[in-house]
């Protein structure tokens, strides 16, 4: 599941997104980047890491960093309960887990359903957004998870994600 596939999916007519909650806000990301969904488990802390990097966990032998976007973007409250969910993503040939408040649904969107993102008003910088979509009553914020995860802002990877093991 590399960036090419993701890109192609972006351009396909109909795309599937996994929607999730951060606090009260409704977000969605390209389902092709999702590796799996798990419950939150104890992490091993990493020294000198920013607070939104919770630490690393063992995902069947891979050491995977866990990021709490709620802390990074100050949405909702960073609480960890038995219902706290971690979405394991496969982006840029890496595995990264993000903590969310809940996963709601898989939604199908046509290209014309997606509106351009607003310049302001959401927690994320608009460069990390694909657009907005309305689903029944709600507004869903479509996140370009790949550009977000590999962004310098998160500083997850050395050298702009170019170094691989």
């Amino acid at each position: 599941m590399n960036s090419n596939i993701t890109q192609e999916n972006m351009h396909a007519e109909s795309n599937e997104f996994l929607s999730f909650f951060l606090g009260e806000e409704h977000y969605a990301l390209d389902i092709m980047t999702v590796k799996e969904i798990r419950g939150y488990e104890t992490v091993t802390k990493i020294a000198n890491a920013p607070s939104f990097i919770k630490g690393v966990i063992n995902l069947r032998g891979d050491i995977v960093p866990i990021i709490d976007l709620r802390i990074k973007f100050s949405v909702g409250e960073a609480t960890y309960t038995e219902f706290t969910i971690v979405i394991m993503l496969n982006v840029c040939d890496r595995i990264v887990g993000i903590v969310v408040d809940g996963v709601s649904d898989v939604i199908k969107l046509q290209d014309e359903d997606i509106r351009p993102p607003p310049e302001f008003g959401v927690a994320f910088d608009s460069k990390y957004l694909l657009g907005l979509a309305s689903l029944e009553e709600h507004m869903v914020i479509l996140v370009n998870i790949e550009s977000l995860i590999s962004s310098d802002e998160l500083g997850l990877f050395d050298n702009h994600a170019t170094t691989k093991e």
Binding site: T44, A47, A49, V56, I63, I95, L156, T163, K164, E165
Partner: peptide
């Protein structure tokens, strides 16, 4: 195990 595979180098840590 490599930390850098999915994350990055961490000062003082050789691996996990």
């Amino acid at each position: 195990k490599s930390l850098e595979q999915n994350y990055r180098r961490v000062e003082g840590v050789a691996g996990a």
